[in-house]
Simulated scan of single mutants.
Amino acid sequence: MANKESVKPFKRHFEYHNHLLDDATKEMNEWTGENKVVEIHLFQMFSEVFKTHDHDAAEALFIVGTRETTPSLEAVSVTPVKPWLFSRVFALLGVSFFLLAMLFLVFRSNNAVPGMIFIGSLTVPFSLMMMFFEMNVFQNISVYQLLTVFLVGGILSLVATMILYSLIPSGNGVSLGSAVIIGFIEETAKMLVIASFINRFHLNYIFNGLLVGAAIGAGFAVFETAGYTGQYGLVTLLMRSWQAIGTHTIWSAIMGAAIILAKDRHRPITGSNMVAPKFLRFYILAIGLHAAWDWNAPFAVLNILYLQQWLLIAIGWLAIFVLINAGLREARTLQGQRILKKTQLG
C-alpha cells in the first residue's frame, strides 16, 4: 500500500507534464489549421537510424529531385517520416573533425585549425539540413538545389542581416530589449531570403518550406560559428556546435514552413501573405526563441546545466514536430483530392 501511495505523486507529475505537452502541440497545431493534439513518437521517427542500410539506399536518396526522379503526387509516401541518412552524414563529419583534432593535438599542426573550424561549424547544421532533405516526402528538391540554397542563401542572409544592423540600433544583445531587436533583425533577414528562394523554385509544400528554411538557417549558422570561432577560439566552436541542434537551422525551418502555410498555393509570396496569422504566429515564435536564447535572463536556475538553452531547444523542436505533422496531413489531403478528381473524370 505504501508503495502505491509513493508512486502517486510521480504519476500526477507525469500526467501534468503530459497534459502540458498535449496543450502545447494542440495550440501550435491550431496555427496550422487543425484543432488536434499532435502525438510525438521520437523512437518511432528515428528508428531507422539504428538499422543497417546499404550504399544503394543512400545513393537513392541523393538522386531525388531531378525531372526523372521526382515522384508523382500519387507515389508520394504519406507514412510517418523516418530519416536515417543524416546520422551517417553526422558520423562522417564527426570522424573528420576528430581526425583533424588529433592532427592538431598530437602533431601540433596549426594547419589543421582552419579545417577544424570549418568541419566543426558544419557538422550539426549540415546534418540537420540533411534530415529535412530526407523528410521532404515530395522529393522535388535536388541536392544541387539544396547546396545552392545552403551556400548562397546562407551568405545572402548574412548580407541582409548586416544591412538591417546598419539601419536598426541593436545594442549588445544581453538585455531583453536588445535581444528582441537582434532576434527580429536576424530572423527577418533570413525570412526574406527564404521567401525569395521559395518564389524562385516555385515551391508549394510545407516540407519544401521546412527544407529551404533549414538550408538557409544552416548556412547562416555555419558561417556565423566559423566567424565567432576565428575571433574567440575553439571553445566557442565546441559550445556553438552542440547548441546548433536548436538554433538557426530550426528557427529558419519554422519560418519556411510558415511561409508555405500562409501563401496561396501555386502563387508567389506577396506582402499580404506575410501578415497572415498563419505566418505571423510562427514568425513571432522564431523571433521569441532567438531573443530568449540571446537574453541574459536574471534567473540563476536557468544557468544550471544550460537549462535555458535546453528549454528553448525543446520548444523549437516541438514546433518542428507539429509542422511535420502538418506536412504529412497536407500530402494526404492532396493525394485524396487528386484521386477524387481522377475518379470523377473517369
Rank of each mutant, 00 (worst) to 15 (best):
K82D: 11
K8G: 00
F14L: 14
E186R: 02
T161M: 02
G213Y: 06
T70E: 02
T270D: 05
W317P: 04
H202D: 12
K4R: 12
S252M: 03
L210C: 06
F207Q: 08
V322H: 07
E68F: 08
L323S: 03
L20F: 13
L105E: 13
I40R: 00
Q243H: 07
F46R: 10
T270A: 00
H290E: 03
T148V: 11
F207W: 07
F201C: 08
A319R: 05
I254Y: 09
A112M: 02
F299H: 12
G213H: 10
G173P: 02
T32I: 10
V95C: 14
K11F: 10
Y144R: 15
G153L: 12
F126E: 14
N136E: 05
V137E: 11
E15P: 07
Y306F: 14
S77T: 08
D22M: 08
N208M: 04
E48S: 13
H19M: 15
P71M: 07
F97L: 15
E30R: 15
P277T: 08
F220A: 11
N3A: 15
H55C: 13
N29T: 02
N303E: 14
D23N: 15
I259K: 05
L99I: 04
F299R: 10
L289M: 05
F150A: 07
N273H: 09
V89Y: 04
A179L: 03
N29G: 08
Q308N: 12
V64H: 10
F279L: 02
E39W: 00
A179P: 06
